[in-house]
Design a protein around this nucleic acid. Structure first.
Lengths: 330, 330
DNA sequence: CTGTTAGCGCCTTCAA
DNA sequence: TTGAAGGCGCTAACAG
């Protein structure tokens, strides 16, 4: 079951090494035999067994992608960028999701052992260093949107802090002083960074923060909805609500409208990520644009380079620009 | 580079066959040696080389997932179900997306040759038969949401036709007679089925369809927006708009509001899929609930069974129930 | 230019 | 219960 190089050799009446040469080196083979081999291979529908190739070369042609819990448009966009770029380099993708703890991540890492030539790890609630603390395969690893100080580790991020600080400045510039904030997941580094941006912009402006204005969330629409309900129920209702991402902003939007309030005249609203839907909410959502697809594309590009050059990129850390997009919700 | 079975054997002072036995069979090994091997393997951090295992067993431990263009929450949800179930069975996922033509799909199929033990193919714009027409690996294949008549092919679908027919009945029951329809991608089988449901419900009710009420789209928010603009610009404006999926409904919603019209009092609106966001639009979207995550989970489950039993399931075709969810947009 | 051969790492008969 | 040896399919030295 399955045609092997031997079958091709027999059919072309040459040795298996000649077949191998034709299919790889492409040199030192007479035209006569080359043609015979090529025809035989085509007729038989021969495809080299990747396991055998990998066993010999210790390369697999696959890239591993480790993601946290995948939900919503953000990850779909990211994967789009990743997959398209990987296909361009003729790599296959081994994807594993739902790794929120170090333990789960490590298990997944182990599962990918020797099955991939490089790894892309997005782990916002873990530090890159902690993952690499354990002995691991010596394949290149690129971290994305992960906390990482070590300059010996390749990292692609975007400016969670600066983006939210800019957005907060924008909201403050609109005259708001009581600004609600719906947090992201407790353990997520990007959520913490975004909150820091919110806080620092307040400090800059000399505005004190009422801690009751900061409510928990987890990036989901539901949590955004619940967060907004909570904020709007307070005696001194905030005049603006900043959600930690677009999904929770979408949830918040529905809660605001349920409360019979208007956006932006009663309550201004902002998000983060700029997922495709953000342009199509009513009103369109002011948000921080993150080039998500490009993020995926670049991450894979860097990973492919690491694999090729066997060295981490210089500089090892790269941050993609984000940009405040003011639409009609503020 | 890389600990092999030989290293473990040397360290435990046994032969490699004993190591192999301990790690697999678990029988016919003295307790003494078993312990030594287990310790050595643990201390050395030994993980069997999957390429070597695969070369011998011709099994890979991976499942291939072939998807069309991935966008939005639908695929994120689907992948959630898929990944979770696969992890439960200890399978790794090889995912490849953006296969819209038979040619691309076939190339991807070829790329996965011998790298996976089974395939999940979602190809709404291709027939299952056409894919399998070409000689292919004899691994189990499960098609999802694909056109397929052949009972020798395993298929999981949901009722695109019935769902949209029910929804159309609902809209007609609300008294609407001019109902706009925003189509899905031209080549997509599910989009055609949904349109058929729309048409048949009209026929049932004795309502003639003004063909100008059917406008093109491609499931994206933007196309939904553009479609709605087009529909609302007609002299005899429709009093209801049915989008072929939730994303395009979300786009349509924004266009309706831009036109200064209210949903549902001026124009009723419906979607299809019931992605998480559908509950959080303003107003919440009436839509056809598709158990997307369960769809992914079940598909993988069926695939795992096919691999285990080496036979296609009985019955080979399975359709998941969908259900009209009436919310505030109608 | 071409064929023979030795592994890559693992599992599994086959003897002992 | 154990070890030696063959082979999975392929590539790359090594002879010819």
């Amino acid at each position: 079951m399955g045609v092997t190089i031997r079958d091709v050799a027999r059919s072309a009446k040459v040795s298996i090494s000649t077949v191998s040469r034709v299919l790889n080196d492409k040199c030192n083979v007479s035209d006569d035999k080359r043609v015979r081999v090529e025809n035989a291979a085509r007729d038989l529908g021969y495809i080299p067994n990747p396991a055998a190739q990998s066993l010999h070369s210790s390369r697999t042609g696959s890239l591993g992608i480790l993601l946290p819990f995948v939900s919503g448009e953000f990850y779909a966009e990211f994967l789009n960028g990743v997959d398209k770029t990987a296909q361009g380099g003729d790599w296959l993708l081994m994807i594993s999701t739902s790794h929120n703890s170090e333990e789960e991540l490590r298990a997944a890492l182990k599962g990918m052992y020797r099955r991939v030539d490089g790894l892309l790890i997005m782990a916002p609630n873990i530090t890159a260093e902690s993952v690499l603390l354990q002995p691991h395969d010596d394949i290149p690893i690129v971290f994305v949107n992960t906390r990482c100080e070590d300059e010996a580790i390749s990292l692609i991020t975007f400016d969670n802090y600066g983006g939210m600080r800019e957005m907060t400045r924008h909201v403050i510039a609109q005259g708001h002083t009581r600004i609600g904030f719906i947090r992201g997941p407790v353990m997520a580094f990007d959520a913490a960074e975004r909150e820091r941006g919110y806080r620092d912009a307040h400090a800059e402006a000399g505005l004190a923060i009422d801690e009751r204005l900061i409510v928990p969330g987890n990036y989901s629409q539901q949590s955004g909805h619940d967060g907004a309900v909570r904020l709007l129920g307070q005696r001194e209702r905030p005049t603006a609500i900043m959600a930690s991402n677009d999904d929770s902003a979408i949830g918040a939007l529905s809660a605001i409208r349920e409360a019979g309030l208007d956006v932006p005249s009663d309550v201004a609203l902002t998000g983060f990520d700029d997922v495709p839907s953000a342009r199509f909410t009513v009103p369109p959502l002011s948000t921080v644009h993150v080039p998500v697809r490009e993020l995926g594309a670049r991450s894979i590009q860097v990973l492919m380079e690491c694999i090729q050059t066997r060295r981490i990129p210089d500089p090892p850390h790269f941050s993609m620009d984000v940009e405040v997009r003011v639409r009609a919700s503020t």
